[in-house]
């Protein structure tokens, strides 16, 4: 199944996910974690959209909602132009194979008692795409494609190294020819040399099959390597969305600027007295600050930032920013610290 050329593989519109906080003796709802708080984006065929942001900002929750592993509180999810938000599990079933996932730790999602070949072939059998010997044949080819020897099909998950397990996860996700793969921190647990193997493989597969990726990571260098466009999140909201080049060369949101300035570079010559752009901790998503969520740490905050939540607007073609000090067509230069 493949989406029509101009229709995005995935479109997310105004997505909201709140988790209830229960408290007291009766475990009544006493509040909500606003894990995702009105997020919109789309991903085209052959495109990688990176989702970056600090721990707890809602990246995985977006991934899980898009995969329909959890129900959104509000908003719409469209797969290849079709609204699947309200579909019940039965009706969702045929759509599931269009969108697959790879996890940070594939081991925890693999049955330790099944041979690797069976694990990878599971979706093929489940969707009735192939049976028996035909499945084995297909799985053997998938193993080869991700750089594993087909005779490894008989081995069990614990007999593989971290990078090899991640390849198994990729082979399994690929097996049903998806349009989109949600990859949630797929290389975060891997050493750099193994990480390189997996990133190279993901890029090759994208070029070969026109796959779209929703790629979640907190590593900016990995992001820059693999993404075409990048969405930066802070406390449940997208604060900036732009092409990779624009985001890295002309970040407009103060939080993006802070993230980039905080990233370490593998080059001692560029060792610098860090510009301390932000201080302090990330506030709790159960009690996000009013107005602009970033105002408690933003060096450029004005009085209005404490009351008005800035919408995400397209300030230049393809460049979306949610900051009161970054209006449409505004000066992209550095902001001044209010005196």
């Amino acid at each position: 199944m493949s989406a029509a050329p101009n229709i995005p593989v995935l479109e997310v519109d105004g997505l909201v996910k709140h988790f209830p906080i229960l408290g007291g003796l009766l475990q009544r709802r006493v509040g909500a974690v606003r894990a995702v708080d009105g997020v919109s984006f789309s991903i085209a065929k052959s495109e990688t959209l990176g989702l970056v942001g600090e721990s707890g900002c809602g990246k995985s929750t977006i991934g899980k909602t898009v995969l329909k592993l959890i129900e959104p509180t509000a908003g719409r999810i469209l797969l290849g132009g079709e609204d699947v938000t309200k579909l019940k599990p039965g009706a969702m079933w045929p759509h599931r194979q269009r969108i697959q996932t790879i996890f940070q730790d594939p081991y925890s999602s693999m049955n330790p008692r099944l041979p690797a070949g069976t694990i990878v072939g599971e979706p093929l059998e489940n969707y009735g795409i192939t049976r028996g010997a035909e499945t084995d044949e297909r799985v053997a080819r998938l193993f080869e494609r991700v750089g594993l020897r087909p005779d490894a099909m008989r081995k069990y998950a614990h007999e593989f190294s971290g990078g090899q397990r991640q390849r198994l996860g990729i082979a399994k996700a690929l097996s049903v020819n998806p349009d989109l793969i949600v990859a949630d921190e797929p290389v975060s647990a891997l050493d750099v040399s193994v990480q390189a193997q997996v990133l190279n493989l993901l890029i090759d597969l994208q070029e070969e099959y026109g796959l779209a990726y929703l790629f979640i990571s907190h590593d900016l260098a990995v992001m820059r390597h693999i993404s075409h466009r990048i969405a930066v999140m802070y406390l449940g909201r997208i604060v900036e969305l732009a092409t990779k080049r624009t985001l890295f060369t002309q970040p407009l949101h103060p939080y993006t600027e802070a993230l980039l300035s905080a990233a370490t570079a593998p080059d001692p010559k560029r060792r610098r007295k860090r510009k301390r752009i932000v201080q302090g901790d990330v506030p709790s998503p159960a009690k996000p600050p009013p107005g602009c969520h970033f105002h408690t740490r933003c060096p450029y905050a004005m009085a209005e930032c404490k009351v008005t939540a800035p919408p995400l607007i397209e300030v230049a073609p393809g460049h979306h920013v949610a900051c009161l000090r970054r209006p449409v067509g505004g000066d992209p230069g550095p902001l001044s610290v209010p005196g």
Partner: peptide
């Protein structure tokens, strides 16, 4: 090998 395997922020497509 390690040095060549690192994705770098300062290397552009």
């Amino acid at each position: 090998g390690l040095m060549r395997a690192i994705p770098r922020l300062d290397v552009e497509a």
